[in-house]
Design a protein around this nucleic acid. Structure first.
Lengths: 195, 195
DNA sequence: GTCTATATGCTGATAGAC
DNA sequence: GTCTATCAGCATATAGAC
């Protein structure tokens, strides 16, 4: 891990964030010291403060970057016509995106309580924007008479919790492929909302 | 908070566990010091070690007690005949039980990573027993031709994630009563598995 | 049963040399 | 850009008085 003195500004920054994500996800924000992050990167603790003003901002920036990337990725996703196809697109996107970034997802859910109030509000606002994307699909299907959803907000939260739950048990190389899992979950969601 | 010197063995123990649950849920195990728990109870930090050998055991005992109580409560629940009624009973029980103990539930999910390997294994075994209870209901309905569940394990995990998710957003005195929320969730679960 | 005092060590963050 | 050295504070856990 030891690193010689020298100029590495362009690579050390990303390495710091990478190490922080890994360690925060494994052990939790409060349990990880700046020294440990530094050791993982191969620098001394003091050097971290070239890349973040403090530990709290490091956490906040990780969470914000994750949610902004989630929103941008969803907005970049091709949107087919029809509520069923849109909902299927959302379900497949959500599972795929979340399974690809388990550490970021874990942090974004588990470390909310370690954010200072101002930072917490900013993260929650981003999350709400994402939830609203699903809610709009459900609303569209409802209006078209394709879905029967007694409460849009509840159905939104139920579906997101169900889909995100895959991250808690899915193991690469396990009994089922991502594609198989995604198909089964989409089937359950479809039946849960179809009229 | 100050407490006079004296004999309080029978009440201080429960107060310690109560304070620990509250603080661990709010701030996280790693972020809460023994001093802070002691202050909440109204004793000095050293006195806590009369009630737990160390902080790790305190966490483990809280989680184990929670899961054992969950299992015992489910086993004590009256079991109606028929897979649909049994599934409805499970859904209503799960939401009710979890909404009544949000702090315990939060800890049981969020602090797994702060358990030492041996303790982690014990907690996971208890959780699996609870999941198995739902899986057996789904299996029964599947065999009776009432449910159409492509994969028992996936459906189990999906339903539990969905139901537990209520805890993340439900607020007492909000737009919907517990009863209304439970009814809507049961409806979604029913439609997701019915054949 | 609870207190005070203390050991040993780690924490986040900064200052200044190179 | 990174290092070493350091500050002031808090951590868990224990010892011994009352």
């Amino acid at each position: 891990m030891a690193r010689k003195t020298g100029s590495h500004a362009n690579i050390t920054g990303p390495l710091v964030r990478q190490a922080a994500v890994r360690l925060f996800a494994r052990h939790g924000y409060a349990a990880v010291s700046m020294r440990r992050i530094a050791a993982e990167v191969g620098v001394q603790a003091g050097a971290l403060y070239l890349y973040t003003p403090d530990k709290q901002t490091l956490l906040f920036d990780l969470m914000r970057a994750h949610l902004e990337d989630l929103l941008a990725s969803w907005e970049a996703e091709p949107k087919p016509a029809g509520a069923f196809r849109r909902l299927e697109t959302f379900c497949r996107f959500h599972i795929r995106y979340h399974l690809e970034r388990p550490d970021h997802v874990f942090i974004a859910y588990m470390e909310l309580r370690n954010l200072e109030p101002e930072n917490f509000a900013a993260i929650e606002a981003l999350r709400r924007r994402y939830e609203r994307a699903l809610e709009e699909i459900l609303e569209e299907g409802q209006k078209a008479g394709l879905f029967r959803v007694p409460d849009l907000r509840l159905a939104t939260m139920a579906i997101i919790a169900m889909l995100t739950g895959v991250n808690t048990w899915y193991q690469e190389g396990g009994r089922l492929s991502r594609e198989a899992v995604t198909g089964i979950y989409w089937d359950m969601v479809r039946r849960a909302v179809a009229s």
